[in-house]
Design a binder for these strands. Structure first.
Lengths: 232, 232
DNA sequence: CGAACAATTGATCCTCATCAAACCTTGTGG
DNA sequence: CCACAAGGTTTGATGAGGATCAATTGTTCG
């Protein structure tokens, strides 16, 4: 596997980077390939690298002491993750990063990024924008979890996933997502049983079609309706 | 009310700022005094200012369409809030900021901060550190909400508050917090009834003492125990 | 074809929200 | 200084929303 430095232009944080910057990252970075189910890093590891996903898909999750886990975010191509080490000294990853399919990521030493950030305000702004979007999404999801019922949270999660990951197979053919019931449960703070019941009900209503590790949204508008329906 | 620019040194984001920077902020900023219950800004307003709390106390909250609200964070003296406008163009506050007591804040135009960030990597790093701590806290709270029971979430919230707001009245005299049952409920995604029952139970056990809008933690260690007790 | 794993579905139970009523605390005005 | 109002708190009774458990069915892949 090889990496063309100019491809790094796709990374949102690198919008304002110079070509030399990109060459530096591509040159100093290490390509790491990871099989499905394996890990880029674990919650608690020292955050010595940050990663950019070159191919495949990964997820960020957090576990509590008893091993129960929540799904915080899905990482797609050209997204940066595990970047907090570039900002804090001796930081520790607060999450675990696991490959959802066989994936390749560019690992860049936090220190390298840090020195770049000191001289490239454009890149620093890019990173700050990424961080603010994280904050906003987490705040919104936190509010949902605290105030909305399972039905609405799941509808919201599907809408969000459709926006981030959706394969819009031409027009009106539906938006297809590839997640198991368990995955969705971990994203919404519920159980796979409840998800199964909900999806079955929605399929009965023609809002979506489902399969094994597959959810195809046929009527996004109806989902939005459910998500926005007056709480309680 | 007057403001000594060197006092801005207390603001964590300004650790690496020069005296000229601080003078600029103090000079260009506007002091805004706000009575208890009033608002610095609302969710949905254009984020044209960022704020630094000079005195008093405030909270950041988010409401859903039906008006139910969650408490995202309490702002103490010298903390910065509403800063995302300095990072994104035409940003909109994702939260509402409300004074918990009569308070004064320094309002700085987002544009001013933005130009500073372009030339002062130290300050940019300060802001990024603040953002990463927000992200980590929100992730942790999200996981708690998704996986832990009310008892543990409330224990965790009190521990967190004790760390952020605690008035450690000398040694072993307990840590006193000033929040109503309703406040704690909004922080933990539960109801004031449940909080009341929990606090009564804990008071019976001697873990804390309570009063009107007052919680005094006598045995922090016992709270940690509850928070960490094996889930489910 | 069979094993492994994902999904479904029914039955049951438990945590916590909700509602209602009373009680306590604090501040205010007569 | 007392009485009252307003708002915070407590406590009991009830019920609903989901979690949990168990058993079965469906799908994929070697």
């Amino acid at each position: 596997m090889k990496l063309d430095p100019t491809d790094l232009r796709h990374v949102s944080v690198f919008q304002g980077a110079t070509n030399e910057d990109l060459n530096l990252f591509a040159g100093k970075g290490i390509l790491r390939s990871t099989e499905e189910g394996e890990f880029f890093f674990f919650q608690g590891d020292p955050a010595v690298f940050l990663y950019i996903l070159i191919s495949g898909k990964a997820k960020l999750l957090q576990s509590n002491p008893s091993g129960q886990q929540v799904n915080l975010r899905t990482i797609h191509q050209w997204e940066m993750f595990g970047a907090l080490g570039a900002v804090r000294q001796n930081a520790i990853y607060p999450v675990t990063a696991q490959a959802l399919e066989s994936s390749t990521a560019l690992a860049i030493e936090s220190k390298v990024m840090q020195t770049i950030l000191e001289t490239r305000p454009q890149i620093a702004f890019g990173l700050m924008k990424l961080m603010t979007s994280y904050i906003q999404e987490m705040q919104a999801r936190y509010r949902e979890l605290a105030t909305e019922r399972v039905e609405q949270r799941v509808a919201n999660a599907l809408i969000r996933l459709a926006g981030q990951a959706g394969t819009k197979s031409s027009k009106e053919a539906g938006i297809e997502l590839f997640f198991s019931r368990q995955d969705v449960a971990e994203m919404t703070g519920t159980t796979l049983y409840t998800i199964s019941r909900l999806l079955s009900e929605w399929e009965r209503q023609g809002i979506l079609e489902t399969g094994r590790e597959r959810i195809k949204i046929m009527k996004p508008h109806d989902l939005v309706q459910i998500a926005d329906s007056l709480e309680k």
